[in-house]
Write a protein that binds this DNA or RNA. Structure first.
Length: 455
RNA sequence: GUGGUUGUAGCUCAGUUGGUUAGAGCACCAGAUUGUGAUUCUGGGGGUCGCCGGUUCGAACCCGGUCAUCCACCCCA
């Protein structure tokens, strides 16, 4: 037998880690609920065709596909062999695989809305916190199984939704102590206008992919990449002027206005930005014209959240507006907008900045020492009494040296030890020791509940 | 998917040009201490050197493969 292991890019979470994750998750869920979003959960797996083609060519490759059962059944063998030939050619076939692990929460959500269109009342605001899987190669801040937290509003076009979502970001990050986060905003319409100006709509993807890398590779390499992607030097010059826009949000908008002139799309995009900025002033919004986002279903405002600059971690959240997501599933004309939190990355950031509260790790408040058969039965009564008052405590499982019991308490980060030996049994008074300060004091059995409720 | 890094005790890591029985610190167990831990002292257990194969009289060390890890690219949360 070889040593047991887990698949690449997956993790076990110990008690300590689960508590920290739950701290983040409950902060997010609380804010979602506060803004009137309702929970939704969808299956871990979807039909493959639900997912294929929704995330671009690259995305398709990163979907974990599930092998069909019963391929070795004699009556399936011929089909399986034919199917496998197709797989080797790089094509998927239902003969080999017809299900896949979900890749994000947005497409399954769109599928759900399309399926339940008649029953839902719009606008439908849902949040969803579930694991997703990507067959990417793991590295810093990147896992093959990770948790996404999404909130989306569908069936509603007003920009008030975008304003609310920006506020959700702000509320969550402030609550987590991550006040120096950056919330980047842009509009897909402005990018479309730029493409209009430089060679037409079919160049949109080429342009966005290249300019998205600006802060990583610098302006010269972006220009190289643009010319490699077939753009003329006059067009590249326009893009460069676009990328050089800087200053405050107002200054950026003014400069863009000058660049785009009377272009209708650009005008719309800038109105969107202006609206959201003016209503969500309190948040950390910052216009970033280089922001593009990979997923090609976005059509309006797009968001991306970056960790504080001191931490080397890319995006910890993102989202945007899509006009017709459910159209992919036969229900056209439902616009929506949504955001997502990357919990695993937020975790790493909070860890690096030491922002987790220390008291997260206190689960058991008091450990009652086991001082013998008679004594422990008295302690047992006390323990049960405390539990009735929702005070978590435990009785050590066997009467061993106090040394051992102290060490157990220390390891579990239990703040108090309660000693009930023969003397204490007689006097009905326990010795309560604060393990951090080392101080101890007598507390009558009848006063234990009050004592622990107060400390 | 492409390129690189690392893999030795529960954890962090030493380990000489290839040479007897592979080490340290922390952790663990027992005792000094039969009702007071996180300080001290003494003793003890624990390793198929990631896995498979090759070279060699001899491999933790050299070579090939494989798996895992971390990092970069692509892409993304």
């Amino acid at each position: 037998m070889s040593k047991p292991s887990i698949p690449q890019g997956t993790r076990d979470f110990s008690a300590e880690v689960v508590r920290k994750r739950n701290y983040i998750l409950s902060a997010i869920k609380e804010v979602f609920e506060l803004y009137g979003f309702q929970p939704l959960e969808t299956p871990a797996m979807e039909n493959l065709e639900t997912l294929m083609g929704k995330y671009g060519e690259e995305g398709d490759k990163l979907i974990f596909k599930i092998l069909n059962n019963g391929l070795s059944d004699p009556k399936n063998i011929e089909k399986a062999k034919e199917g496998f030939e197709k797989i080797l050619e790089g094509k998927n076939t239902a003969a080999i695989t017809e299900r896949a692990l979900k890749y994000d929460l947005t497409i399954p959500f769109a599928r759900y809305v399309a399926m339940n269109f008649g029953q839902l009342s719009f606008p439908y605001k849902r949040y969803q916190v579930q694991p997703v899987w990507r067959a990417d190669r793991p590295q810093k801040g990147r896992y093959r199984e990770f948790t996404q937290c999404d909130a989306d509003v569908v069936g509603s076009t007003p920009l008030l939704n975008e304003v609310e979502l920006a506020n959700i970001y702000h509320a969550v990050f402030v609550q987590l102590g991550l006040t120096a986060y950056e919330l980047k905003i842009n509009s897909r319409k402005i990018l479309a206008a730029l493409a209009d100006l430089c060679g037409g709509a079919d160049k949109l993807t080429d342009i966005t992919v290249a300019i998205d890398k600006l802060d990583k590779i610098g302006i010269d390499k972006v220009k190289d990449e643009l010319s490699q992607r077939g753009l003329q030097s006059s067009q590249i010059h326009t893009i460069e002027k676009y990328l050089q826009i800087s200053g405050s949000n107002e200054e950026k908008l003014a400069a863009a206005q000058q660049l785009f002139g009377s272009n209708e799309q650009a005008k719309k995009g800038m109105e969107e930005l202006q609206y959201v900025l003016s209503f969500a002033k309190n948040t950390n919004l910052d216009i970033d014209f280089t922001l593009a986002r990979g997923l090609n279903y976005y059509t309006g405002i797009i968001f991306e959240v970056k960790a504080p600059a001191s931490v080397k971690m890319g995006s910890i959240g993102g989202g945007g507006r899509y006009d017709d997501l459910t159209g992919l599933f036969g229900v056209p004309g439902i616009p929506g907008v949504g955001i997502s939190f990357g919990v695993d990355r937020i975790y790493d950031v909070l860890e690096e900045l030491n922002l987790f509260p220390a008291d997260l790790q206190v689960a058991t408040k008091a450990l009652f020492f086991n001082m013998g058969e008679k004594e422990s039965s008295v302690a047992f009564e006390c323990v049960q009494q405390l539990r009735l008052h929702k005070i978590s405590c435990e009785l050590f499982h066997e009467p061993v040296k106090m040394d051992k019991q102290f060490k157990y308490a220390e390891k579990k980060n239990i703040p108090f030890a309660v000693i009930i030996g023969s003397k204490e049994t007689e006097s009905k008074t326990a010795v309560v020791k604060n393990l951090k300060t080392g101080e101890q004091q007598p507390v009558q059995f009848s006063e234990l509940t009050t004592f622990f409720l107060q400390s």
